[in-house]
Amino acid sequence: MRAEIITVRHVRVDLAGHRVLDDVALSARPGQIIAITGENGAGKSTLLRCLAGLQTPTGGEIDVLHGPPADAAAFWRDVAFVADEPAWYPGLGVREHLDMVLSVHQGGRMSAEAALSAVDLAGRDERHPLTLSTGQRQRLSLAMALIRPSRVLLLDEPERGLDAAFRPRLAALLRDYAGEGGAVVMATHSLDLAEACGAVHLALEPAS
């Protein structure tokens, strides 16, 4: 049995006639954190979308959990993806969102109280996400991804909107996740966050 649960080989992506990714390779084992870095337009988000099955590569191979990624419920049962914009359902409070994730998955990695405390939203559990600040909404999104059971965590710029004081706590949360055997792949501009996580760097260069 292979140790890697994510493998990317010779991946190439062309968008609107422009090469965004060219001959990208990546592999991740359980317990590993990969930080994809690079300037704007280097293709970090595109690579994450390929790993999430939301973008079909023009060429190359991608395996996530021993199969090609697919935008289907069976895939998402093992993979959690925090995209660029936090999302919420209208009419539900902060804690109800976390409880919803636990109820739908019929269990989770931690309790709602623990998750609220971990992301410093304990006093705001009854509020609507709309009344939170941008950073607090990002913390809620991260808590919803971290509370549910998963084997792979994909994060697109998780540090967006977060204050400097919270970033070491996020790094600790990601290390805990990896310590339990999950693999994290994140696109980030924060080298400090990547360092604090003990992540393996993958620096992308613009393809063209």
Binding site: D71, W76, A80, F81, A83, W88, V101, V104, H105, R148
Partner: peptide, 8 residues
């Protein structure tokens, strides 16, 4: 995004 997070 939420539906994917809920895996439904």
């Amino acid at each position: 995004a939420l539906l994917r997070l809920l895996a439904v």
